[in-house]
Design a binder for these strands. Structure first.
Lengths: 203, 203
DNA sequence: GCGTAAAAATGCGTGCCCCGCATATTTTGC
DNA sequence: GCAAAATATGCGGGGCACGCATTTTTACGC
């Protein structure tokens, strides 16, 4: 990757991070595009060269994570499908280098801000759409892995859709519970249940 | 329901239908809120008393359908969960009275317009969000049916998420195939696969 | 019927957003 | 270095979402 592309990726990440941080701190409507551009050190017009809306900038990190699932899935060895899926999703929700680079002062306050942020309707749509975009990649990976034609057969897209559904359900439950249940546990449970056909538990 | 509420529902449906029809005919960006309001016989300002955005108006019908799933699920008798789900989802995708009231001149042209419409990013987000809203109702219905606390246990929301995932996958596959595969077949296959744990088919 | 209170529709003004287009600046390949 | 391509910026317009005040419509008790 040349200097050109690296700088582009940096600007993109910088804008996305600024959008998230400011929104969590001040609330979606209180943050103007101008503020985000300033925080990232570019002109307001440049913001829209990278993202077509404020929401898209905020959802960009989620999009990257979901695309990472598809990428990881392609690198898994031959193994049962749901084992491969679980081990592709889990690492995306571990704290990584990108998070470590932006330490958060007050964790509780941050979480509260994230909850408020995710309550914003337009954000919910944007985040779900990010998942849908990644779904196409996941479906393609599943198609390659199983040798099933996604144009003709529903199976690959259905699996991809189920993967994102389980991931979303785990994430919302993570945010719903207080204190938040660990994602690793929720994801493991979710995919185990899916692989078992979601049988009604007998209490 | 009194006259007041009925008229409100009528205006809402009228606005939503006008938004959809005009968008399918002319394209999302070519339709102004003013046009929709005019077609529904209300002032532009009134439009935003019913919907907070153009996209929301277009997605409203989808939201109603998805909420109908939750409602139907509550009325199903005691039976295996996935039987109840299938029989709750299927009727929502049959041509109903609401569709019959608005006959379409050219079916092929209409379908093409719908495809273009659904390619609009903001619409995709809005439609997915409608599904997410309905998910909460479905989760509540599943919680009642199974007696599982949705606050504490992931299961109800996971099932609801899977229901919408399968429905979405069926719908996108319906639009992807040419000629469109019938929804009834796709939905039946999807829920059968989900109930079986999405095993990799052996060709 | 009729008056009144609630609710809905409307008109107006504001701030912001998204994008097209023209221009300036930077990077790349030679 | 230099020309070409890619990127960043400045400017302006069309439109959208919404707050607020006002008018019109509806509901209901008498």
């Amino acid at each position: 990757m040349g200097l050109r592309e690296r700088k582009k990726a940096e600007t993109r990440a910088s804008l996305s991070w600024a959008a998230i941080r400011l929104t969590v701190e001040r609330g979606f409507d209180s943050v103007k595009v101008e503020d985000i551009a300033e925080a990232a050190g570019v002109s307001p017009r440049t913001f829209n060269n990278y993202f077509s809306s404020k929401g898209e900038a905020i959802a960009a990190r989620h999009l990257d994570r979901c695309l990472g699932i598809a990428e990881a899935l392609r690198e898994r060895p031959a193994e049962p499908l749901w084992d491969a899926v679980l081990h592709s999703v889990l690492p995306q929700f571990e704290p990584d280098a990108a998070v470590a680079a932006h330490p958060v002062p007050d964790a509780a306050q941050w979480t509260a801000g994230v909850r408020v942020m995710l309550a914003e309707p337009v954000l919910q749509g944007e985040i779900l759409r990010a998942g849908a975009i990644a779904e196409a990649e996941i479906a393609a990976a599943v198609a390659d892995r199983t040798g099933i034609d996604p144009q003709q057969d529903l199976y690959p897209h259905l699996v991809a859709s189920a993967v994102m559904a389980a991931t979303n359900a785990a994430m919302t439950h993570h945010l719903r519970t207080d204190p938040p249940m660990p994602m690793s546990r929720l994801l493991t449970d979710a995919f185990t249940l899916i692989a078992a056909g979601l049988p009604t538990p007998t209490p």
